[in-house]
Design a protein around this nucleic acid. Structure first.
Lengths: 251, 251
DNA sequence: TGAGCTTTGTGTCATTTTAACACTATCCAA
DNA sequence: TTGGATAGTGTTAAAATGACACAAAGCTCA
C-alpha cells in the first residue's frame, strides 16, 4: 500500500502538480505541445495530455514547471507564466485517468491540485523528445481538437484566454517567430491568438506605431509571389514595452 | 509526532491552503480584511495575516476559500475570484510564522502552497467576527501599511494588481457601494483602486456612457454642501457588462 | 441673515484613435 | 506572356481622449 512520505527535502509532494501549456507557431497556425500517454488498456480515455507532474518539496512552482517540462519533452529554457490553480477534488479521477496514474504514481488516489503554466515558443526551435512516462511528445494544431486527459481541456481554455489578455497589454511574438519574419506572419500570429480576422492595413499601422520593429532591407526569396520585406524585433524596445506594457492594444 | 493522514474524504490536506484578500470600501478609501494572530512569544513577527487555512480533500478550491473566510471572519456569501498560486518552499518558514503554525497545525513543518482569492465587498454590510484561531478580525486601511505574516504582503500586491486589471475589462462597484450612491463616491472608488487621480468630468462622461447607472431623482440630505444626486446600478445592464466585459476602460 | 465654506455639476475644443475600404506592384510558374 | 498569389499602401468619417474653469446649492457660523 502507498504510504505518505514525510514531506521534507527532495521528496515528491503527492498533492501538488504543475501542468504546462506550451503554444508554438508554425507561421501558419497555433499548435500545442502534448504528450501521449500510450495505450490505456481498459477504459479507453484520451491518450493526449499536457506535460505535467508532481512537484518536489524543495523547489518552487516555477522551477517545478520548468523541470517537468524538460523531463517530459526535452524543452529547455522556456519562460513560463502562471495561469492559475485547478483543484476540483475529482479532476483526476475519471476511470481511464486513474488507471494510468496507477502505473506512474506512488499514491495514485491522492487528491492533487495542479498549477498551470503557459508559454509561447517558436516551434521550429524546439523539437520535443519524449521521455519519462511520456511515450511521445509532439505538436498538435490548436484547432480541430479532441479531448485531453484529466481536466486538461479546461486548463487549455484558461491558458488561451490568458494569452488573449496578455496580447492586449504586452507585445507578443518575439518567442514565437523566427529572428527574421514578415509582417504577414506576425499578422497571422495575432489572428491565431485572438481567433478573429484583423484588417491588414489597420494591423500594420498599429504594430508599426509600437516602434519595436526594424525593417531589415532584405526580402524574402523564392516565394511564388511578391516577396515580403523581412523584419526583426528591436530587442531593447521590445523588452521595454514588455516591462511597462500598454494599457490596451485595442483590436 | 505528526503523522500524515490518508488524504481521502474530509481530511485536511496538509500541503494546500487558501488565502483570501477581501477589499472593502468605506466611501473614502480601500480597506482590507485581516486577522490578528495574537501575541507571538519569541520572535516578534507581524501579527496580522490574511484569513487563510488548509483545504479539505473533499472540497474544491473555491469552496475552501469561502469556508475558510467564513470560519475565520464570519463573512458569508462573498464571490471570490482566484488570483493564483504561491508556492515558494520557504514561504511559511520564517521563525515567527513557524512558531505560530506549531500552535494550530498538525504538521507545522509541511510544505504548503497556497491559492489566493480576492473579493470586493461593501464594508458596512460586513462586520467581521473573529473565530477559530483568529484572535481578531477587522478592516485595515490599505494605505500606510505594515508587514503581514508569511508571504501575505506579496499576495496582497498580486491581488491589488488583479483588481486594477479587472477594472479595465469589467465594471466594478456593485459590491463595494451601498445601493444608492453618488458619482463622487464611485469616482473615489476608482481612484482608490487605480491609485491615481482621475479627471472628474472625464470620469463622469465615461462612466455614464457605460449605461449602467440610473439617476434616481433623489438627492443627498444633510450634507454641508450642495447635495449630490443619488444613483443606482442598473443590475441587468451591469451583469450583462460583467459577462461580456469591455476591451478597455482606458483610464 | 448673509458671508464663507464645501462639494456638485457641467461643455468645449484640439488631438488622437478607430474602423472601413480597394487597387497596384512584384515575383514565380506554367 | 499571362495568370496566380501575396505584399504594400492612404483617406475619410466617426468616436474617444485629455485638458481645462466656473456657477449652483446647501450648510454653518458669526
Amino acid at each position: 500500500m502507498h504510504q505518505n512520505l514525510k514531506k521534507i527535502g527532495a521528496e515528491l509532494n503527492p498533492n501538488v502538480s504543475v501542468d504546462c501549456v506550451i503554444f508554438g507557431f508554425d507561421l501558419e497556425k497555433l499548435n500545442i505541445l502534448l504528450i501521449d500517454r500510450g495505450e490505456i488498456s481498459a477504459a479507453s480515455g484520451p491518450r493526449l495530455a499536457l506535460p505535467g507532474n508532481l512537484i518536489y518539496n524543495n523547489e518552487n512552482l516555477d522551477q517545478a514547471a520548468s523541470r517537468v517540462l524538460t523531463e517530459l519533452t526535452g524543452l529547455q529554457d522556456i519562460y513560463l507564466e502562471q495561469v492559475g490553480a485547478f483543484g476540483d477534488p475529482d479532476r483526476i479521477h475519471k476511470e481511464s485517468d486513474r488507471e494510468w496514474l496507477k502505473s506512474i504514481r506512488a499514491e495514485p488516489e491522492a487528491r492533487v491540485i495542479t498549477v498551470a503554466y503557459v508559454s509561447l515558443v517558436q516551434m521550429s526551435g524546439y523539437v520535443p523528445q519524449a521521455s519519462s512516462f511520456a511515450k511521445n511528445a509532439d505538436w498538435f494544431p490548436l484547432d480541430a481538437f479532441t479531448e485531453l486527459a484529466f481536466d486538461h481541456s479546461e486548463i487549455l481554455d484558461a491558458a488561451k484566454n490568458k494569452l488573449k489578455q496578455q496580447l492586449k497589454i504586452q507585445p507578443i511574438g518575439f518567442n514565437l517567430l523566427p529572428e527574421k519574419f514578415t509582417l504577414s506572419q506576425l499578422h497571422r500570429l495575432y489572428e491565431s491568438i485572438l481567433d478573429k480576422p484583423l484588417d491588414k492595413r489597420n494591423f500594420r499601422r498599429k504594430i508599426q506605431k509600437l516602434n519595436i520593429l526594424s525593417n531589415l532591407k532584405e526580402k524574402q526569396r523564392g516565394v511564388p509571389h511578391k516577396p515580403s520585406s523581412l523584419y526583426q524585433f528591436n530587442e531593447e524596445k521590445y523588452q521595454e514595452l514588455t516591462q511597462t506594457g500598454f494599457d490596451n492594444f485595442g483590436f
